[in-house]
Design a protein around this nucleic acid. Structure first.
Length: 903
RNA sequence: GCCCGGAUGGCGGAAUCGGUAGACGCGCUAGUUUCAGGGACUAGUAAACGCAAGUUUGUGCAGGUUCGAGUCCUGUUCCGGGCACCA
């Protein structure tokens, strides 16, 4: 009987669906385990073999945990709002809901074929009103809360009003003034800031959606623009987002990325008096190098800073305006490209160094950012490379502050050396001087310790159609939250998915987009809104009274294992943690951090194949002979190439141009060239999981993807090895058969058979716990090889073997499990208990060192008592050979398996 | 520029605590099979020398610690990733 994977897989996929095998309920009698995949955005292209890598790993772990007796929550859903569906809708006029629906159906079909153990009854879709009701709800909660720095948590806005009232800052204010005042505190707020504006997409974008001046989606140029937008006060959580990382079981590189993104920087704020003619102001700046204050020779303002207007003198007005204009016109891209170019203009005003009393000029330059610190800096050209470049360009003085530093070519940025030219700081090391300087300015009342973060608030509105509407309406220009009874506020129909003629977002086209006669917000929420709390929704997906019930939350608590790509390091994974911490502050969830352990699966790259066409002919020459001709390299569809050998008939059928192709062969075959490239349609190297399932079966696909290499590593999809894995499954299948007849005996297993089995159980258990799935597959291959050699067809061995294998190859395992006479699914069998007694080696290898030099290794029986070792060493043939007749005076057995021989 | 991570046969990759480097798979070589094959099976396969037993070299490069280093330390080169005027 052959291993008929097509039938087996169809049969068991149907069985699981019909019996709801993987449906899960909260069960306090069992320990819970929550395994989550980052849910996919269902794109039109469908899945390629790279996508399921993480899903397969999480599925193996889920199935393993079930065998270990855990109540496993393993859900899946779709991140269904987003730009591509909308772009497609604009092009074709098709409603994004429709294309999204189609894409989801295709994804589901592809996933089902791989045999995942998801509880599909818990599926969520972010574009489903029953789901986005809770996204909107969370937004309203954020609108109605503020961050209290004293308690260090979010609190209802009422506590703020009470506080303001107490301080006499509330009564007597107009409705508008009150709204504006509260806006400065709300967690979700409407605020004017410089934003990333993408004209091509017609929307603003968050920092993580922009890379090198281009939009991540679509690659369009992005510019800076001051706009009024909804924002989330993520920055309020900066410290907690940073310190929370310590408790997480994430990779160091991922934590490091988040730390960089949060960008904590410890320093001081200092007050400088600035003079524009006879007008005097106090200007606060931020610095991490308070010790260098004696070296300040000028000040610099960001072009967008409010100080620019106050400090521009009438004489300099024209020059400053010209500078601002040309700075404004630059796109973000140009700003980045010209990073090294120094530009700036003198404001005409002067500042006074609070320590030296010296007068220094105030300049304006692009290299100072409005959004960080106070948008103004003190410049110390001797010890900051950017200030140095600026001073050199505009001929400003440079005062060295560290003994013996060389500043003739560049600044001395290192925080080391002994201070000089610095008044009371002279003679101190830099490390002493920094706190000493801050202590001094604090004592003098001209500055204070301050921590700044790079992390900015998240821009939360998008001028697009396909997203969650804001439950906000405007009365007299003041934004008001809609009552909860209005949720979900459903996305309205529009005639076109484009902005209006007046440049308003698409929702402005909707008929009657009002609440009690007042206009409703026309922006929609960004992609990360729906993905920020989806892991909570899976716990209780059908609850229409709450995002998640207290009971469900207290049982499932948090995600124990989260698997997904590293591309979400500074986006989703920050927002989600923020969102969770906010809900935690409000008392809706019981864990501070949502994702306990996180694994980033590597990308699967494509392995492209090439054919070589002799120029101006339709003749193709095999790779090994191509250097003898003048050829053009052409990508060829990897699906008509097997082990780098071209299927020539399929090639002729592939494209009309090649129908008459001729070939120059090597040994009767056409060998293709190859290269590792990104998996993409244009390089014809996309491998679809369906075609692999068709050819080899889902179990082979699953095992092969794991066998390819460590989970976290990026690696190319290389079909060369897949035959080996398939061969292994067939060999495993054959273990159960004697000349085509299923024949498993109840005979007692021999020590050798038990050893092979338990070696596997121990290794597999250990490797799976460490997510080393590639070595687990190797262990399977070794075990099956050994059992084949032993001609073992015993139930005592084969039953546990099948259980251990079942997380990796569930279909074949189910089939054999049934043939072994079990009525129930193997999914909830008990993982066999590892007994190390069976695997003990008979002999131990001892490295032997003699007269101080290690020379050789001898093998002694494990059963040897320590007192017997000496005699055994003396008697060993190797010992005799190396001692060459010298007398052994003493043998010392060192713990840790070292034997010393003294002659 | 700054911060992470990595470098092991022809290839993907093993090596849990510093203890026989190269597991497992691919590929390749030879052979077996009433063998159409992209089938099944057996043996070999780090390199150099050798008929062989064997000997020597060997984990990017240069040093160091150790009886012993792919593994630890110092320096260096290359590759991958992240951040990038963040004061």
């Amino acid at each position: 009987m052959d291993y008929n994977f097509v039938e087996i897989e169809k049969k068991w996929q149907a069985y699981w669906a019909e019996h709801h095998t993987f449906r899960v309920q909260a069960d306090p009698s069992k320990p819970k385990y929550y395994v989550l995949d980052m849910f996919p955005y269902p794109s039109g292209a469908g899945l390629h073999v790279g996508h399921p890598l993480g899903y397969i790993a999480s599925d193996i772990y889920s199935r393993y945990k079930r065998l270990k007796g855990f109540n496993v929550l393993h859900p899946m859903g779709y991140d269904a709002f987003g730009l591509p569906a909308e772009q497609y809708a604009i092009q074709t006029g098709q409603h994004p809901a429709k294309t999204t629906e189609q894409n989801i159906a295709r994804y589901r079909q592809q996933m089902d074929r791989i045999g995942f153990s998801y509880d599909w009854s818990r599926e969520v879709r972010t574009c489903d009103p029953a789901y986005y009701k809770w996204t909107q709800w969370a937004f309203l909660e954020m609108f109605n809360h503020w961050y209290n720095p004293e308690t260090d948590k979010a609190e209802p806005i009422e506590t703020l009003i009470a506080k303001l009232r107490e301080e006499g800052r509330w009564d007597g204010l107009s409705e508008k003034e009150r709204s504006d005042l509260l806006m400065q505190y709300r967690i979700a707020y409407l605020g004017e800031t410089s934003v990333n504006w993408c004209p091509a997409l017609g929307t603003v974008l968050a920092n993580d959606e922009v890379k090198e001046g281009y939009s991540v989606r679509g690659g369009f140029p992005v510019e800076q623009k001051k706009m009024k937008q909804w924002q989330l006060r993520v920055s309020a959580y900066a410290e907690r987002l940073l310190s929370g990382l310590d408790s997480l079981d994430w990779t160091d590189s991922l934590k490091e990325m988040q730390r960089n993104w949060i960008g904590r920087s410890q320093g001081a704020e200092m007050v400088f008096h600035v003079f524009n003619g006879d007008k005097e102001y106090e200007m606060t700046i931020f610095t991490t190098r308070a010790d260098t204050i004696f070296g300040v020779t000028f000040m610099v303002l960001a072009p967008e800073s409010d100080w620019v207007e106050k400090l521009t003198t009438p004489e300099q007005k024209e020059a400053v305006e010209a500078y601002l204009l040309q700075a404004k016109k630059k796109t973000e891209r140009e700003r980045i490209a010209e990073t090294r170019k120094v530009t700036g203009v003198f404001s005409g005003s002067y500042a006074v160094n609070p320590l030296t009393g010296e007068k220094v000029p105030v300049w304006i330059s692009e290299y100072v950012l409005a959004g960080y610190g106070t948008g103004a800096i003190m410049a110390v050209p001797a010890h900051d490379s950017r200030d140095y470049a600026f001073a050199r360009t505009f001929n400003l003085p440079i005062i060295p502050l560290i003994e013996g530093c060389d500043i003739s070519e560049s600044s001395f940025d290192a925080k080391e050396g002994t201070m000089c030219n610095s008044g009371f700081l002279n003679g101190m090391s830099v490390k002493e001087a920094i706190p000493a300087a801050i202590d001094y300015v604090e004592a003098k009342g001209i500055g204070r310790r301050k921590i700044n973060y790079r992390l900015r608030d998240a821009i939360f509105s998008r001028q697009r159609y396909w997203g969650e509407p804001f439950p906000i309406y405007y009365k007299d220009g003041i934004p008001y939250p809609m009552p909860q009874s209005c949720l979900p506020l459903q996305l309205p129909e529009v005639d076109k998915f484009l902005p209006t003629e007046t440049g308003e977002p698409p929702l402005a086209r909707a008929k009657d987009w009002t609440y009690e006669g007042h206009p409703i917000e026309t922006s929609t929420m960004p992609g990360f809104a729906g993905s920020s709390a989806y892991y909570l929704r899976y716990m209780d997906p059908h609850n229409d009274q709450a995002l998640v019930s207290r009971d469900a939350d207290e049982y499932w608590r948090d995600v124990d294992l989260y698997i997904g790509g590293t591309e979400h390091a500074t986006g989703h994974l920050i927002y989600s943690r923020f969102w969770n911490k906010f809900l935690y502050d409000c008392g809706y969830v019981c864990e501070q951090e949502p994702f306990r352990k996180l694994i980033n699966q590597g990308m699967i790259q494509g392995r492209s194949n090439f054919v070589y066409r002799i120029k101006n002919t339709n003749t193709f020459v095999s790779c090994g002979l191509k250097d003898q001709y003048d050829t053009t390299e052409i990508h060829v569809d990897v699906n008509i190439v097997h082990n780098d050998r071209l299927d020539m008939e399929a090639f002729r059928r592939w494209m009309p141009d090649f129908a008459t192709a001729e070939f120059i062969l090597e040994d009767g075959e056409y060998i293709c060239g190859w290269a590792i490239e990104k998996m993409s349609k244009s390089m014809f190297n996309v491998v679809n999981p369906d075609s692999v399932c068709e050819r080899y079966g889902a179990d082979t696909l699953r095992m092969y993807e794991m066998f390819l290499g460590p989970l976290e590593q990026s690696k190319p999809w290389d079909t060369q090895g897949i035959d080996g894995v398939h061969r292994f499954l067939r060999r495993f299948w054959k273990l159960f058969f004697d000349r085509d007849v299923f024949s498993v005996t109840d005979e007692k297993a021999t020590p050798a058979e038990l050893k092979a089995l338990h070696k596997l159980i121990g290794k597999a258990q250990d490797d799976i716990e460490h997510f080393s799935f590639n070595t687990t597959v190797s262990a399977f291959m070794i075990a099956v090889g050994e059992l084949t050699d032993l001609k073992c067809r015993k139930r005592e061995i084969l039953e546990p073997l099948t259980i251990v294998l079942s997380p990796f190859a569930p279909h074949i395992a189910e089939e054999l499990w049934q043939m072994l006479g079990h009525g129930e699914s193997i999914s909830f069998a008990a993982f066999p208990v590892y007994n190390p007694a069976f695997t003990v080696e008979d002999n131990v290898k001892y490295p032997v060192q003699f007269n101080g030099k290690m020379r050789f290794v001898i093998e002694l029986p494990k059963s040897l008592a320590p007192s017997e070792v000496e005699a055994a060493v003396r008697a060993d043939a190797n010992t005799e050979k190396y001692l060459q007749g010298a007398a052994v005076r003493k043998v010392i057995v060192v713990p840790g398996k070292i034997i010393n021989i003294v002659c």
